[in-house]
């Protein structure tokens, strides 16, 4: 197991390196640069001076090596669009709303989806099964900005119950959290339903019934545990994906989160921020998948206690 984890960590490092090279070169391959004439025209000599100041006049591989040397010392540079702070400070500041809203969205949506999926599997072809299917299908097919718009229309415009946008007071959190929760809820409803149905048809469930175990105990102790193993592994990557903010949700509810920077850093050619965002995302997803795999092995005795039949 230790050897396995070490091998996986090496592969994470390799992935991280490859992604850094790819992003760095693609970023620079896009025509133009941060100080091109456009929003703020500057004289050519000033532009050259600025490029030199940021080290952008050096050959690309030198820039890359210098950047990565910084990364190793956790120095991600200064964002061009907000020179008053470091990239890390900006990320730390902007991540809070995304983490709170997206994170709560997953933490609320996933368990609700699981409950719905369980109810659907246990009461097949009942109204709750159809409801679960409808939630799963709609949640996965309606784009999140449409969901957001419908939420704002219903609860802010027509009913006037909740503020439509902003950040700060907790009542402003509710609508974006609901918007974030739809996809985890839909995903979990679908996965849980099929995993439970799959387990309920296993022969060992008949054996449990034959030995007189009450249905409640069969479902909550045995079926749920067997079905949950694959579901656990979906959670971390989903959490990372949602808790790093969605540009659509943050734009619709005007949340000052991380989501908008993914786009604005590319548009404004903010090299340090763009690199930092992509590297952060890469590392977090790699680690999330690694942890999920370890968790899966740990929860599943067939892997944890390898061997096989004697």
């Amino acid at each position: 197991m230790i050897g396995y984890i070490l091998r996986r960590l090496v592969s994470v490092a390799v992935t991280f390196f490859i992604v850094s090279v790819l992003i760095f070169s693609m970023m620079h391959a896009i025509p133009g640069g941060p100080f091109d004439a456009g929003d703020m025209p500057v004289p050519e000599e000033v532009r050259q001076k600025l490029l030199a100041q940021y080290g952008l006049d050096e050959p690309l591989y030198v820039q890359y090596l210098k950047y990565m040397w910084g990364v190793l010392r956790l120095d991600f540079g200064v964002p061009f669009q907000s020179p008053g702070e470091t990239v890390l400070e900006l990320l730390g500041r902007a991540w809070v709303p995304s983490l709170v809203l997206g994170g709560l969205g997953v933490l609320i949506g996933a368990p609700l989806g699981m409950l719905l999926g369980m109810a659907a599997a246990l009461k097949r072809n009942s109204w709750i099964d159809y409801l679960a299917s409808a939630v799963a299908t709609l949640g996965l097919t309606i784009p999140v900005f449409v969901t957001s718009m419908l939420l704002i229309l219903t609860f802010s415009v027509w009913l006037g119950w909740l503020p439509s946008s902003g950040w700060g007071a907790p009542e402003r959190w509710i609508l974006p959290i609901v918007a974030y929760a739809t996809i985890p809820m839909a995903t979990y409803a679908r996965y849980t339903r099929s995993a439970m149905l799959d387990t309920l048809n296993k022969p060992f469930v008949t054996v449990l019934r034959a030995k007189g175990l009450p249905e409640r105990q069969i479902v909550f102790k045995h079926v749920l545990r067997n079905s949950a193993i694959p579901l656990v592994t979906v959670f971390l990557p989903m959490f990372i994906g949602t808790a790093t903010g969605s540009i659509f949700v943050e734009a619709m509810f005007r949340v000052p989160g991380l989501g908008s920077f993914f786009v604005s850093s590319i548009r404004t050619r903010d090299y340090p921020l763009e690199m930092a965002l992509m590297l952060m995302l890469t590392l977090m997803f790699c680690l999330a998948y690694l942890l999920s795999d370890i968790l899966y092995a740990w929860l599943n005795p067939r892997i944890r206690h390898g061997g096989g039949r004697e």
Binding site: F204, L208, K211, G212, L213, P214
Partner: peptide, 23 residues
């Protein structure tokens, strides 16, 4: 039924490999 099964009547099945909960 819960009381009858296991206590009054028990059952063993054809394929022992799939008869136990794997976890």
């Amino acid at each position: 039924l819960t009381r009858l099964r296991g206590r009054a009547a028990a059952m063993i099945f054809q394929d022992p490999m799939t008869a136990f909960d794997p976890v």
